[in-house]
Amino acid sequence: MTDDIRPAFDDTDKSPGRPISLSSPILVGPERTLPPGYIHLGVAKEISPALRDFGIYPDSVIREAGLDPHLFDDGTNVIPHAALGRLLTLCVARTNCPHFGLLVGQRATILSLGMVGRLMQHSETLGDAVRALVSNLSIQNRGAVPSLTVIGDTALFAFSVYQPEAESADQISDGSLAVSVNALRALCGAGWNPVEVLLPRTVPADQEPYRLHFRAPVRFNQETAVVVFPARDLDHRIAGADPMVRALLEERIQQIKGAQGSALSDDIRRLLRIRLTSKRCSADDIADLLAMHRRTLSRRLKGSGMGYRAITNEIRFEIARQLLHDTEVPLGQIAAALGYSEASAFTRAFRRWSGQTPTAWRGEGHPG
């Protein structure tokens, strides 16, 4: 595999066409665009009460992350995904709690997922609900991407951060899976439990909070955040689902998605983040998924100033950074997950991207 193009990153927080202050909310609706890299607060709204549980006044921590505390009064307000990462990093430091993200996710409910959560409540089956989440979360979160895979009699719900330079990806993964399990229990009954949970983070000194919440074996140092459960559960019919409400919600979400539009490069990043470690991801494959000709894909990307290989390397570098920082996964395993035939090829590529070998970068403890 040849990787000759160094990823180009723009780490500034901005939306197309106009600057956006981190200290003011972005109003988002059918007439407004949720920019790539931004999220509705939703689950993150639980950060304030989680900090108060530790006796910490949340406003000062939120301001230190560059955000206005008033944003957290309304879960529909929007912040940059990068700012969420900075805030969680500060929260872990202030509370001295390495599983702070898990606590935030524990507090959240299916309604923390906004309109998508309501659509899940009124879906016919659990499978329909999970697929609704996978298909529509982008109207509320353009910093991470969920996926559902069924292999034989096993279902795997995965959640991956895909924004460059994302801090606290491990905390975001913890919280995302925690609220996902809450949502699944809301739909299947409080007694529902996964078969196991996989987390892309180092083994914590105290694993008990994870066992208590997930009520299932938890495996750490994994490549992706995954909830594993029986595929037959996807056929579970959801009590109280209203077809008329479902139709109204689906129509409203389609209106939002149509007005929101989508940057092609962001679509590609989302696809690559969930496919890069498990499937072939050539430009032809991605063009096919986007229902366009390979030449059309190249032409549109050229117009945006970034080629397919550069975007692929950006996502490869992001995954590598997260795994090097947040886990103890061996270099050979990371290389294989990213599609390299040898660890030495991955090492050469990583050196081009960062100026360091993966071992040196991991040893210096760079932020994830």
Rank of each mutant, 00 (worst) to 15 (best):
T2F: 15
R6C: 10
K14C: 11
P16W: 06
P16V: 09
R18A: 12
R18I: 07
I20C: 15
I20F: 14
L22P: 05
P35F: 13
P36W: 07
I39Q: 11
V43K: 05
A44H: 14
K45M: 14
S48N: 10
P49M: 03
D59Y: 06
R63S: 12
L67M: 14
D68R: 10
D68G: 07
I79M: 10
L90S: 05
V92Q: 05
R94I: 07
G101L: 08
Q106V: 09
I110L: 15
G114L: 06
Q121M: 12
E124F: 07
L126V: 15
D128G: 10
V134L: 13
N136D: 09
N136S: 11
S138I: 07
S138W: 04
G143N: 15
G152S: 08
G152N: 04
A155Y: 11
F159A: 11
E167Y: 08
Q171P: 07
Q171D: 11
S173M: 12
S173W: 04
S176C: 12
L177W: 10
V179F: 15
N182P: 08
A183M: 15
A186E: 12
L187N: 02
G191D: 13
V195H: 10
L198N: 14
L198Y: 15
P204Q: 04
A205T: 15
P209L: 02
H213F: 09
P217F: 02
V218E: 01
R219I: 00
R219F: 02
A225W: 02
F229Q: 00
F229I: 00
H236R: 03
H236T: 06
R237I: 01
A241I: 00
D242M: 00
D242P: 00
A247F: 01
R252P: 00
A259T: 11
S262I: 04
R270E: 09
R270I: 08
R270K: 12
K279M: 10
D284Y: 13
A287E: 06
L290C: 11
H293T: 13
R294P: 02
R295E: 13
Y308P: 04
R309I: 13
R309K: 13
T312H: 08
N313C: 09
R316Q: 12
A320W: 01
L323K: 01
T327M: 01
E328T: 11
V329E: 00
P330I: 00
P330S: 01
L331N: 03
A337V: 02
L338D: 03
Y340D: 05
S344M: 04
S344W: 03
F350Y: 11
F350G: 01
W353Q: 10
G355C: 05
T357L: 00
T359V: 14
G368F: 01
